[in-house]
């Protein structure tokens, strides 16, 4: 299938005050998003998943820098595009939703103003047409009394409503790709389901591809076709969603699955992966997950595993490959 976005060997690093060495947040990541598909990017906070999306959008913080790699979108390498050209794509053919609906909207501008400015930036609609379009968008994302809400300020809306506005804004120009960075993390579970349903619905209607960044495997199961699991700046496993849930291969992914709270006898402790994510400036020499892995051998600590194809596009960065699955 044709890919709408194809990231290859992306390396992103950050400078911090008073230090010469840069912290490498993303280390050689490759990822493909098929047209019309939904790809999940999963991992703990700090594993580099948001950094990946921000570098594709050209929105890295000042101290961040793309050191290597390419991101092909419609024949262009987004990472080499001058800002002026990238701006034409942002909010138009690629758009983004962020984690915090409470802080992602400007508090001193009305919802309508923030919607219409996105529309008018990428079209030659006049004020009235843009307003009509914005109200239509608000209705599409399920905001009641859209015409009234148009004149509201963000603080007059609930968190779920604000995220709907964000989605409306992102869908304003019916983009080819929607990057959703933990769009439901800050919301109640019932609202989360509504927002996910809305995204699915919009995708079906417009054929938009989605990159879903999340640490929530439930969201992945709900929405994604394919999943990339990231750990410490690298992809450790890639599989279609059924394979991943049926038969994941990497010990880290297995740990994530086991960490999901489920109905267990009272008093039994929830599973957690021991240890913490390694420091970006002090990565283990071998497998990055080895210090926390229950199955790590001497080889894992000394040598770095590559991504191994387990068949059918199921990739796994582990010496034990499928064997890990059979251990327990």
């Amino acid at each position: 299938m044709e890919n709408i976005l194809s990231i290859k060997d992306l390396v992103v690093s950050f400078a911090s005050d008073g230090r010469k060495d840069r912290a490498v947040a993303v280390n050689g990541l490759s990822l493909d998003i098929p047209r019309g598909g939904t790809v999940g990017l999963v991992g703990e906070s700090g594993c580099g998943k948001s950094v990946t999306s921000l570098s594709v959008m050209g929105l890295l913080a000042e101290n961040g820098r793309v050191d290597a790699g390419e991101a092909r979108f419609a024949g262009q390498d987004l990472l080499k595009l001058p800002d002026r050209e990238l701006r034409k794509l942002r909010g138009n053919r690629i758009s983004m939703i962020f984690q915090e609906p409470m802080t992602s909207l400007n508090p001193v501008l009305t919802v309508g103003r923030q919607l219409t400015e996105a529309i008018r930036q990428h079209s030659d609609m006049d004020k009235a047409a843009a307003k009509a379009r914005a109200i239509e968008l608000l209705e599409h994302v399920g905001i009641p009394e859209a015409a009234t809400r148009f004149g509201n300020y963000p603080h007059q809306l609930s968190g779920g409503m604000r995220q709907r506005v964000m989605i409306g804004m992102a869908m304003a120009m019916t983009p080819d790709l929607l990057i959703a960075d933990e769009p439901t993390t800050a919301l109640d579970v019932s609202i989360e389901a509504q927002i996910l349903r809305l995204m699915k619905d919009l995708q079906r209607r417009h054929g938009t591809s989605i990159l879903m960044i999340t640490h929530n495997l439930g969201v992945v199961a709900e929405l994604c076709d394919e999943v990339y699991v990231m750990y410490a700046g690298e992809v450790v496993e890639r599989a279609d969603v059924f394979t991943l849930f049926r038969d994941c291969a990497h010990p880290y992914t297995r740990g994530l699955m086991a960490s999901l709270p489920r109905m267990t006898p009272k008093g039994q402790r929830l599973y957690n992966i021991r240890g913490t994510v390694p420091n970006l400036r002090a990565m283990p020499a071998g497998c990055r997950f080895a210090p926390r892995c229950e199955l790590a051998s001497e080889r894992c600590h000394a040598e770095k595993p590559g991504l191994i194809d387990l068949g059918g596009g199921h990739l796994c960065r582990c010496f034990l490959r499928g064997e890990a699955a059979n251990h327990e």
């Binding site: 942002r90 909010g91 909207l105 501008l109």
Partner: peptide, 24 residues
């Protein structure tokens, strides 16, 4: 965050500064 949102909409830097940042 809302500055990042404004930039993600493809607004030019001048607009981001004057319309979104300066008023606040």
């Amino acid at each position: 965050d809302y500055i990042r949102t404004a930039r993600s909409k493809g607004l030019p830097p001048f607009t981001v500064i004057t319309r979104h940042a300066l008023k606040n």
